[in-house]
């Protein structure tokens, strides 16, 4: 019962949460840059406007792929908040990402194709760490199931601090934040315009934005399950850690310039090895 409730809650409130997060993000970013910034609810005004506009596409396949992207992101989140298998959730989100990449390439446009190739590179960069996160949870708590992970006696982070840090590292890529916003970013002032989403407009762009909110909620949920254990107060700690982690992401976004793709790939793979694999080794050792 509680599983179904949390799934429904996710379905309904993830966009609200994601949108608010984006609003707060913009506000804090503006304050860091000495600006006043838009109102907190600005992302909602934006998305409502996008949905009210006419959709113009380059290729009709784009519609199919963009819906596929949204559907599988939501599916991933539901699986996660239902307490399902973490590994399966990661496989599903990979599928969703591939829909987005196909959407960008199906436009046959210079900027969006470039964006899709870069996005693909980013996926290759974070994929090892994502798998290691799932493996780490499995060794630490004995299960891939989110439901069992959050009811274990000790928090996973107690034995997986390296994996936790590694996850935060690749989270910068997933949140599309500088220095790793190669394929597209929240700011359309780069050499490839808006990369991945150049050829999306109106409703289709609104759908990707909505999917991004669903995705962010899911990604933050993973930070939380590192902390949450059988005790009630661990939930409060988890909330604080999530907030802190997101604040750090904003800080990094505003203090680092974008890097070249080789730095992104090399550093992510090295981090996955240095923090992830070594942590796994230690886990095997203490078991």
């Amino acid at each position: 019962m509680i599983k179904i409730v949390s799934t429904v809650l996710y379905l309904v409130f993830a966009p609200v949460f994601g949108g608010l997060l984006a609003g707060v993000d913009r506000k804090i970013t503006a304050r860091m840059q000495g600006r006043k910034g838009p109102p907190i609810l600005q992302p909602f005004y934006d998305i409502f406007k996008l949905f009210s506009k006419e959709a113009i596409v380059v290729d009709h396949l784009q519609n199919l792929f963009v819906i596929g992207y949204l559907v599988f992101i939501i599916f991933t989140g539901c699986l996660f908040f239902y307490g399902g298998d973490l590994l399966l959730a990661f496989f599903a989100i990979t599928l969703a990402e591939i829909f987005l990449i196909m959407c960008a390439s199906s436009a046959n446009s210079a900027y969006s194709s470039m964006g899709s190739q870069r996005e693909l590179l980013q996926m290759m960069a974070y994929e090892p760490m994502i798998l290691i996160v799932a493996i780490g949870f499995y060794i630490a708590t004995g299960s891939f199931s989110v439901g069992e992970i959050i009811t274990s006696q000790t928090s996973a982070i107690a034995t997986t601090p390296g994996i936790f840090l590694g996850y935060l590292y690749i989270l910068t890529i997933k949140f599309r934040k500088s220095p790793f916003d190669l394929s597209t970013s929240h700011h359309a002032h780069q050499e490839m315009v808006k990369g991945l989403t150049v050829e999306l407009s109106g409703r289709t762009l609104g759908i990707t934005e909505l999917a991004h909110w669903y995705e962010n909620t899911f990604l933050i949920g993973i930070i939380a399950i590192f902390i949450i254990n059988a005790t009630w107060w661990s939930w409060i700690v988890a909330l604080a850690v999530c907030a802190l982690a997101y604040f750090m992401e904003i800080l990094i976004d505003n203090t680092y310039a974008r890097v070249k793709w080789k730095v992104l790939l090399n550093s992510s793979w090295i981090v996955a090895f240095g923090l992830g694999i070594l942590n796994l080794l230690a886990l095997y050792y203490i078991k």
Binding site: E54, A55, I56, V57, V58, D59, H60, N63, L64, I67, A107, N108, S109, A110, Y111, S112, V193, V198, E199, R203, T204
Partner: peptide, 13 residues
């Protein structure tokens, strides 16, 4: 969903 959208050429600055 795909009938209603208008088709244009891709963006090339």
């Amino acid at each position: 969903l795909d009938k209603t959208s208008k088709q244009k050429s891709s963006y090339m600055c």
